[in-house]
Design a protein around this nucleic acid. Structure first.
Lengths: 114, 114
DNA sequence: GCCACAGTTCATCGATTGATAGATTGTATT
DNA sequence: AATACAATCTATCAATCGATGAACTGTGGC
């Protein structure tokens, strides 16, 4: 029997991993947030619900650009939307998203201060 | 003076946002983790340091594929690496990364169970 | 219905991305 | 130096991605 000791091959096996579906969901969430333009929108919405033109005015990007970004975020369920008259209001889907954002922003700020 | 009340334009302004550099860093981290193949590696490394061949054996992917994925993760500082003889060992860069992963996996699992 | 406003969608395009086979580099032993 | 093993790099390619202008859709007031 070959006792080939490739690195730590003699050590413990990997613990249980997430099902494929969970992994895909997690990756999709991270990927959706992983664009600077979209991440900025998420950040802005941490402070509360806003309509599309407010977001566009603040960022200086076109309505179609903002709309395209919001579409991605909503399709991955990072955002929710409601309509009031002519206006569409977007907000973070839940507190998990907020916590995720807080964590990564803190970490990024820490790294940038080095 | 135009008192055009576009949605909540009469409401409060946006609070302070992160500097551009912080935003870019945060987005880069999220993006690096936001690929299923790379995210799986991160997940595997949550349980501790592993060498490249262990990761390749477990996932069933080729060495060059694993190496390419690790390269992205390390360049965005999600992973650290050390060499011991012929072997390169990879591990999560710090506990922030672990927390980020935990948060997003829990959220994804929750969504997948609905 | 007409008009105005708010927002989305569509088609297009250049840029980016992830996988891959094989060449190359780094470490260890003899 | 020769050989073996571990891992990285390179070049290539098909697929995906984000921005964009303009057409289109939805809501509201008259």
């Amino acid at each position: 029997m070959s006792e080939s000791l490739d690195c730590n091959h003699d050590s413990t096996a990997f613990p249980a991993v997430s099902p494929e579906g969970v992994l895909e969901r997690a990756a999709a969430i991270l990927r959706a947030a992983g664009d600077p333009g979209r991440l900025r929108l998420l950040e802005l919405l941490r402070s509360g619900e806003r309509c599309v033109t407010e977001l566009a005015d603040f960022t200086g990007d076109s309505l179609s650009t903002i709309s395209a970004r919001l579409r991605v975020l909503r399709s991955e369920r990072l955002l929710t939307r409601r309509r009031e008259g002519k206006h569409q209001y977007y907000s973070l889907a839940d507190h998990h998203i907020d916590e995720l954002l807080q964590g990564v922003f803190e970490h990024a700020a820490e790294e940038e201060s080095k």
